[in-house]
């Protein structure tokens, strides 16, 4: 299938991209790795008049130490994230979840910023950004601003970014020493989207859970923090039994969809079971 015609701009600076978006108006679309956008264009589910390609902007790419934060440029590919020793050291949860995104060829082109800005509730990385308290850096015609991940995802395929704004990167606080992580994903086949995914972070103290963070993928129009289960897990012993009991509340805040992959009640069941597994795996590593 062949996309509808569009104009193409490849600026070599962030300022150039913001200017190009402003000039093109509301029928413009940002192109990063294209692994979500190109299929949409081919199937003519999207037909922008202008594509602004971020692929030529070196400043949007790469991972660097930024004091109390890790900076991950929006145009950094999943492959680069996976191979970043800084990511493995400071936010291993991101590496674990990224390893489950699609397949190697898609990970070579797809970018972390594209995945987050696309805001697909079945995407693996939004729930991870939520759990890690990532700050989303955004540039637009009115300047630069930063949004908490919790405020960034506002609806199905919709973020808090305005038309004309570009996600430039994430700042992840380097507060995760001593935490264990796991991303548990349930998908029908290899390379499929998650029917449900669970991002878990557990900090242990004296043989019990001191603190837990749980983010749910595809359990609503936006990624969900399972706060009731987080509270229930705090203080629980590290054995499977107490963690499973805490996970019984994993779907309390969620409003999962029913679609051709799963009914809502089945997703609730999955969220509880997978959260139990994810907490146990995070607690042991």
């Amino acid at each position: 299938m062949i996309p509808a015609p569009f104009d193409y701009v490849r600026p070599d600076s962030l300022a150039g991209a913001v200017a190009a978006l402003a000039e093109a108006g509301e029928d413009a679309k940002v192109l990063a790795g294209g692994q979500s956008l190109l299929p949409l264009l081919r199937m003519r589910l999207a037909y922008p008049e202008v594509l602004v390609d971020l692929g030529g902007i070196a400043e949007l790419r790469g991972v660097r130490d930024d004091g109390d934060f890790l900076w991950i440029g929006a145009a950094t590919t999943h492959y680069e994230v996976l191979h970043s020793s800084l990511v493995r050291e400071h936010c291993a949860l991101l590496a674990r979840a990224t390893a489950t995104v699609a397949d190697p060829a898609v990970r070579h082109r797809g970018t972390i910023g594209g995945s987050l800005a696309h805001a697909d509730p079945a995407g693996d990385l939004p729930a991870v950004a939520l759990v890690l308290d990532a700050r989303m850096a955004v540039s637009g015609p009115d300047g630069v601003r930063e949004l908490a991940a919790a405020d960034f995802f506002v609806d199905y395929l919709t973020t808090a970014m305005d038309d004309g704004e570009v996600l430039t990167g994430l700042r992840v606080p380097k507060v995760w020493a001593g935490w264990g992580f796991h991303y548990e994903k349930f998908a029908r086949t290899a390379q499929s989207w998650a029917v449900v995914g669970v991002a878990a972070a557990v900090r242990e103290r004296d043989g019990a859970v001191a603190e837990a963070r749980i983010g749910l993928t595809n359990m609503g129009a936006v990624p969900v923090r399972a706060r009731a289960a987080e509270s229930a897990a705090a203080g629980a012993g590290l054995a499977a039994g107490p963690l499973r009991a805490a996970a019984e509340q994993a779907d309390a805040e969620a409003a999962p969809p029913s679609d051709l992959h799963a009914q809502a009640d089945y997703r609730r069941h999955l969220a509880r079971v997978l959260t139990g597994r994810a907490l146990a795996a995070a607690a042991s590593g």
């Binding site: 898609v106 070579h108 082109r109």
Partner: peptide, 19 residues
């Protein structure tokens, strides 16, 4: 349709020629 772009496997249906 997998090819190598700068040494890495890529699905060539998911990339524009201009890219």
């Amino acid at each position: 349709c997998t090819v190598h772009v700068d040494g890495l496997s890529v699905k060539s249906c998911s990339m524009l020629a201009v890219q």
